[in-house]
Nucleic acid binder design. Structure first.
Length: 967
RNA sequence: GCCCCGGUAGACCAACGGCAGAGUCAAUGGUCUCAAACACCAUCCAGUGUGGGUUCGAAUCCCACCCGGGGCACCA
C-alpha cells in the first residue's frame, strides 16, 4: 500500500538523470502556479452580467460573451472545516470545473462560482473551548480552502465569491427574513402576498377577524396575534425539539427517526417553547407538485415526497356514546367506514381522560383491561408505559399493544357502537391522533384486532380467492380497486362501487350530513427557525415593552453580532429534559437593550437573542452569485432573469446544474426551494425553482485498517501481502468507508498535487468512474493519469530542450478518422458529464499520437488534442497551447469540431452469425445495400461451409452492424 | 417489511438489443540502469451475481431470487 510517489521522496517523475524538460511533478507545479497567477491577473473566468457593477464595458471581450447562450453551474458550497479538504471533497468541484471549462470553449457565457457556508457549530464550539472568536477561526479556514481550491485550478469568477458570514451577505439574509415575515400565504391565489394586503382585507371587512369583531376594535396585541397566525415567519409557543446536550432547539429535519440530534447524537425532547417558525407547510403542495418539473435524481425527489407526506382522505367525526364529545379521525379509506369495528386514540390524545368512565362496562373482556381494576387506572398505566418507551423501542417492537378506555363511539353511517382503545401504534403527531380501525382492510388494525379479539367486518370484496370471512384470513385484504360490499346504511349505500367511487360518494354524504369532509394531510411540519447559538445570523427583530415584535427597517441592516466573552449557550446534561434554552446573545445586555425610533419616537426595545439556523444562508446563496456586489437588492431582477429565468412556459428556471451530496436531499434542498418560492411570489425572482437540474456526486471512499485491539492504524503504511494486510509486521483487518481523521485514512489533494500536480489529480478523479458513482480511493493508481499527461507532453515537447516538436506532418486517413471520432466522442461525453469515457478516448488518441510522432508531432492532431485535454488538465494544456505558438489563453478557444466526412469508415466489417454463432466476417462498402451485404455474407467461405448447402430460413442484415443467418 | 441504485477480468470502470474491452491500476516478461526508481515495449486476464423468459441474436429488455450500498419504516 505504499505508493510509488512516496518511495521516490514525494514527487513523481523526478530523478537525478531525468531530462530537464520532462513532465515531472516539479515541472507541473511550476506550470500550474504560473497559469493560476495569469488567470487571476487577467480575470480569465469572469462572467459578465447584463446589468449592474459586473456588466462589461461596451466593445470588450466580455461584452461579446454576453451575446452567447449562458450556463450557470455551481456546487453545493462547503462549510469550511478546520481539517481542510481531503480528496473526496473536490470530486464535484472538479467535475463542474471540467464541464464549465468545456462549456466556455463550446461557446457559452458561463457563470461558475464558489462561496462558503460559514456559520455553524464547529467554529462556535472551538470558540467555547479556546475563546478564539468564531469569525477568526472561520476566516482562517476559508483562507485555507481558497488556497486548496486555487491549487486545483478551479476556474471560478473571483469577484463572485463570498461567505454567508460576510456582513453584506448577512444583511440580505436578514432582509429576506423580513420579506418572509411581512408576507402571508393566500390559499386562494396559491401564493405569498405582502402582509399589508391582508391587513387591508381585515380593515375593509372583506375578511372577517377570527372572532368576528371589526378590525378597528382589536387591540394592537390582538391584531399582532391575528397577523402572526398568517405570517410566513411567526413566533409560536409550540412543541419543539429541545436538545439539552447541544443547548439548542432543532428543526424536525435535524432529528433522527430514533429521537436524537443528527449532529452529536444527543437525546431530543419535546418541549413547549416560544420560537420562530417558518410556515413552510403553506407551500407543501407546490413543493411537492413542482418536483415534477425538476431534473433531479429520482431518490431525492422521493425523499422530498416522503418528507412532505401528502395523503388524501377524509376527516370523520364519531360521537362518543353517553358523552357530549365527538372524536375526529383521519382516514385515507373513508370507503371502508362500514368496516370500522373499533377506534383507537393515540395515548397522548387530549380527549382520553374526558371520555374514560369510572368503571368497566359489563362484559369487558379481561384482555382489554390491561389487568387494571378500572379504566382510569388502565389508561394511566398504559400511558406511563408508552411514555417511557423510547422511540427506538416503539419501532423495534411491532407487536400491537393497547388498552380499552371503557368508552364507545357511534359509527355515523350505521349507528354501531364500537369500543375506543388507546394504543401506541397510533401516533399523536399525525392526522388527528385518532383512527377508525378497519381490521379487515388494514394490516395494522388486523394485527391489533387479532391480538385483542376484536370483530372484523369485510366491506371490500376480496378478488384473490380468499373468501369473504375475515376469520379465515391470515392478513387484511388491502385493495384500492376492488368492489365495496356490506356497506349500506343510514341513507347511503356504497355496495358495488369500486373503491375510488365509494370514497367520493361517502365523502359527499359525510359533508352533507355534517359528519366530516374530504381533506388532505401532510407529514411536513412548519420549520423551526430559532437556534440558541452565537454563530448565526441575528434576527432583525426587536420587542417592545408589551413583548410585541417589531421588524427593523431595511436601513438598519445588517444587525451584526455583538462581541461577547463567552460564546457558549448554557448546556445541560444531555438527558435533562426539564432544562430550558438560554442563548449566548442574552448575556450581551448592552446589545440586547436598545433605544430606537421605529416611527413613533425613541423607545426602549429588546433584541431577539436567538439566531437563525445555519441553513439560512444556503437558502438563497445561489442568487447572490448572480449579483454579489449589488447594494440595493439581493439580486437585480435583470441579472436573475438572464442567469436563472425560465426558458419557456413549462420550465421552472433555476441553476442549470447543481452538484452536491445526497445528504442534503431534504434539509437544504427543501428549505432553499421554499425561500425561493416566497421570493418568486413576491416578485423578486423570475424563476420558480432554485435548482433546475441536480446531480448527486458519489463519495470517494477509502479503506481503513484496524489492528487486533480494534484501533485504527495509518492506512498509508499498511502493506498488502499474500497473507492479507500487514501494518508494522502485524496483520490488520481492512474495512471500507468514509475518509476521515478518526479512521486514519485521509489523503489530501495537497499531497496529490505535491506528488503529481493538480492536472494529474484532476484527470485521475474524473477518470475513476461516472460522477454519480461512489468509488474507492487508490493512491497508487493515480500514476496512470500522470503517465497519460506525460505522454501528451513528451509527444509535443522535446524533453531535452523544452522546445515544441510539432510540425506540419501529414497523417494517414485512418489516423485522421481516429482524430475526428475522438473529437466527436469527447464532445458528446464531456457535455453529458461522462468524463471517464471522454478521458479514455483522449488517452486512445494520445497513444496513437505517440506512435506517429517519432519525428515530430503532426500539428493536425496536436492542436485539437491540447484543446480537448484543456477542460481536464487546464494548466498543462495552456502551457502546450502557448508552446504551439498561441499568445492567448485557450479558455475561450472554440472546442474542436468533428468533420462528419471522417466519421465514416471506407469499409465496414460485418460479422456473420449462423444460428447465433459468429462463423465469418465480410468487408463491404459502408453504404452497401442490404441485398449486397446478404449475398456477400452467404458467399463467405466459412459461412458457406456452415450452411453446407442448406437454404437459410431467414437472413437478417442490420445496417452497419452485422448479418444473422437463421437455418 | 417497502422503495431506489448497483453486481462485467485480481481492482476501478467501458460496451445505440449486434464480434464482451475504450481507458486505468495490479500481475508477468523485457528495454533502459552498476543496481533500483521513473519511463518505455510486450504479455496475461472475465462470458457479464443466479435461474427462467422474450428475440435470429441479451451484459443490455421482462419475471423471480441472491449479494452489496442507500433511503423510508406502525403516517391511518
Amino acid at each position: 500500500m505504499t505508493d510509488s510517489a512516496q518511495q521516490t521522496g514525494g514527487a513523481a517523475g523526478s530523478g537525478a538523470d531525468a531530462p530537464p524538460y520532462r513532465y515531472t511533478a516539479a515541472l507541473a507545479a511550476d506550470i500550474e502556479r504560473r497559469w493560476q497567477d495569469r488567470w487571476e491577473e487577467q480575470g480569465t473566468f469572469r462572467a459578465p452580467n447584463p446589468v449592474g457593477p459586473l456588466a462589461p464595458a461596451p466593445g470588450s471581450a466580455e461584452a461579446d460573451r454576453l451575446t452567447r447562450p449562458k450556463k450557470y453551474v455551481i456546487d453545493m458550497f462547503p462549510y469550511p472545516s478546520g481539517a481542510g479538504l481531503h480528496v473526496g471533497h473536490p470530486l464535484g468541484y472538479i467535475a463542474t470545473d471540467c464541464l464549465t471549462r468545456f462549456q466556455r470553449m463550446a461557446g457559452f457565457n458561463v457563470l461558475h462560482a464558489m462561496g462558503f457556508d460559514a456559520f455553524g457549530l464547529p467554529a462556535e464550539q472551538y470558540a467555547v473551548q479556546t475563546g478564539q472568536h468564531p469569525r477568526k477561526t472561520t476566516e482562517e479556514n476559508i483562507d485555507r480552502y481558497r488556497g486548496q481550491m486555487r491549487r486545483l485550478g478551479l476556474a471560478y469568477d473571483d469577484r463572485r465569491s463570498f461567505a454567508t458570514t460576510d456582513p453584506e451577505f448577512v444583511r440580505w439574509t436578514q432582509w429576506i427574513f423580513l420579506q418572509i415575515y411581512n408576507s402571508w400565504y393566500d390559499a386562494e391565489q396559491h401564493r405569498a402576498r405582502p402582509i399589508g394586503e391582508l391587513v387591508e382585507q381585515f380593515a375593509s371587512g372583506a375578511r372577517p377577524t377570527p372572532d368576528g369583531r371589526p378590525w378597528a376594535q382589536l387591540s394592537e396585541t390582538e391584531r399582532a396575534g391575528v397577523l402572526d397566525g398568517h405570517r410566513l415567519a411567526y413566533r409560536s409557543e409550540a412543541p419543539v425539539n429541545w436538545c439539552p446536550g447541544l443547548g439548542t432547539v432543532l428543526a424536525n429535519e435535524e432529528v433522527t427517526p430514533d429521537g436524537r440530534s443528527e449532529r452529536g447524537n444527543f437525546p431530543v425532547f419535546r418541549r413547549d417553547l416560544a420560537q420562530w417558525m417558518m410556515r413552510i407547510t403553506a407551500y407543501a403542495d407546490r413543493l411537492l407538485d413542482d418536483l415534477d418539473t425538476l431534473e433531479w435524481p429520482e431518490p431525492v425527489k422521493m425523499m422530498q415526497r416522503n418528507w412532505i407526506g401528502r395523503s388524501h382522505g377524509a376527516r370523520v367525526a364519531f360521537d362518543v356514546a353517553e358523552h357530549a364529545e365527538s372524536i375526529t379521525v383521519f382516514t385515507t379509506r373513508p370507503d371502508t367506514l362500514f368496516g370500522a369495528t373499533y377506534m383507537v386514540l393515540a395515548p397522548e390524545h387530549d380527549l382520553v381522560t374526558a371520555i374514560t368512565p369510572a368503571s368497566w362496562p359489563a362484559d369487558t373482556p379481561a384482555a382489554w383491561t390491561g389487568g387494571a381494576a378500572d379504566p382510569a387506572t388502565a389508561v394511566a398505566d398504559y400511558r406511563r408505559a408508552a411514555a417511557t418507551k423510547s422511540e427506538l423501542e416503539r419501532q423495534e417492537n411491532k407487536d400491537k399493544t393497547g388498552v380499552f378506555t371503557g368508552a364507545y363511539a357511534i359509527n355515523p353511517v350505521n349507528g354501531a357502537r364500537i369500543p375506543i382503545f388507546i394504543a401506541d401504534y397510533v401516533l399523536a403527531g399525525y392526522g388527528t391522533g385518532a383512527i377508525m380501525a378497519v381490521p379487515a382492510h388494514d394490516h395494522r388494525d388486523f394485527a391489533f384486532a387479532r391480538a385483542y379479539g376484536l370483530p372484523m367486518r369485510c366491506v371490500v370484496a376480496p378478488d384473490d380467492g380468499r373468501g369473504d370471512d375475515p376469520a379465515s384470513w391470515d392478513d387484511a385484504f388491502v385493495s384500492g380497486t376492488a368492489a365495496v360490499v356490506n356497506s349500506t346504511g343510514d341513507g347511503v349505500s356504497l355496495d358495488g362501487l369500486a373503491v375510488p367511487e365509494a370514497k367520493k360518494r361517502i365523502a359527499d354524504w359525510l359533508a352533507a350530513h355534517g359528519h366530516g369532509e374530504a381533506t388532505t394531510t401532510y407529514k411536513l411540519r412548519d420549520w423551526l427557525f430559532s437556534r440558541q447559538r452565537y454563530w448565526g445570523e441575528p434576527f432583525p427583530v426587536v420587542y417592545d415593552e408589551q413583548g410585541l415584535a417589531h421588524p427593523l427597517p431595511a436601513e438598519a441592516l445588517p444587525v451584526e453580532l455583538p462581541e461577547v466573552d463567552d460564546f457558549s449557550p448554557v448546556t445541560f446534561d444531555a438527558d435533562d429534559a426539564d432544562s430550558s434554552p438560554a442563548p449566548p446573545l442574552a448575556k450581551a445586555t448592552d446589545w440586547v437593550h436598545v433605544t430606537l425610533d421605529l416611527g413613533d419616537g425613541p423607545k426602549r426595545y429588546r433584541r431577539e437573542t436567538n439566531t437563525m439556523p445555519n441553513w439560512a444562508g444556503s437558502c438563497w446563496y445561489e442568487l447572490r452569485y448572480l449579483d454579489p456586489t449589488n447594494a440595493d437588492a439581493p439580486v437585480d431582477p435583470a441579472n436573475e432573469q438572464y442567469w436563472m429565468g425560465p426558458r419557456d412556459a413549462t420550465d421552472p428556471g433555476g441553476v442549470d446544474l447543481y452538484v452536491g451530496g445526497v445528504e442534503h436531499a431534504v434539509l437544504h434542498l427543501l428549505y432553499a426551494r421554499f425561500w425561493h418560492k416566497v421570493l418568486h411570489d413576491l416578485g423578486y425572482v423570475d424563476s420558480a425553482e432554485p435548482f433546475r437540474r441536480l446531480i448527486n456526486q458519489g463519495y470517494v471512499q477509502a479503506y481503513a485498517y484496524t489492528d487486533e485491539r480494534g484501533f485504527y492504524v495509518p492506512a498509508e503504511q499498511v502493506e498488502s501481502t499474500d497473507d492479507g494486510y500487514v501494518y508494522d509486521g502485524r496483520p490488520v483487518e481492512r474495512e471500507y468507508g468514509k475518509m476521515g481523521k478518526s479512521l486514519k485514512n485521509v489523503v489530501t489533494p495537497d499531497e496529490m498535487c505535491d506528488a503529481y500536480g493538480a492536472d494529474t489529480f484532476r484527470v485521475y478523479e474524473m477518470s475513476m468512474g461516472p460522477l454519480e458513482a461512489s468509488r474507492p480511493w487508490e493512491t497508487r493508481a493515480v500514476v496512470g493519469s500522470f503517465r497519460f499527461l506525460q505522454r501528451v507532453w513528451r509527444s509535443l515537447v522535446d524533453e531535452q530542450t523544452g522546445q515544441p516538436r510539432v510540425a506540419d506532418i501529414a497523417i494517414d486517413d485512418d489516423t485522421r478518422r481516429l482524430l475526428h471520432r475522438t473529437i466527436d466522442g469527447v464532445t458528446t461525453e464531456t457535455a453529458e458529464l461522462r468524463f471517464n469515457t471522454a478521458i479514455a478516448k483522449l488517452i486512445e488518441l494520445t497513444n496513437k499520437l505517440v506512435q506517429v510522432s517519432a519525428d515530430g508531432a503532426p500539428r493536425e492532431i496536436a492542436e485539437p488534442l491540447v484543446l480537448m485535454v484543456a477542460p481536464f488538465a487546464p494548466h498543462v494544456a495552456e502551457q502546450l497551447w502557448q508552446l504551439l505558438g498561441h499568445d492567448d489563453s485557450l479558455a475561450y478557444q472554440p472546442f474542436p469540431v468533428a468533420d462528419p466526412q471522417w466519421l465514416t469508415a471506407p469499409s465496414v466489417v460485418y460479422p456473420v452469425q449462423v444460428n447465433g454463432k459468429v462463423r465469418g466476417r465480410i468487408e463491404v462498402a459502408p453504404d452497401a445495400a442490404a441485398d449486397v451485404v446478404e449475398a456477400a455474407a452467404l458467399a463467405e467461405e466459412k459461412v458457406a461451409a456452415a450452411l453446407a448447402g442448406r437454404t437459410p430460413r431467414k437472413v437478417i442484415v442490420v445496417p452497419g452492424r452485422m448479418v444473422s443467418v437463421v437455418l
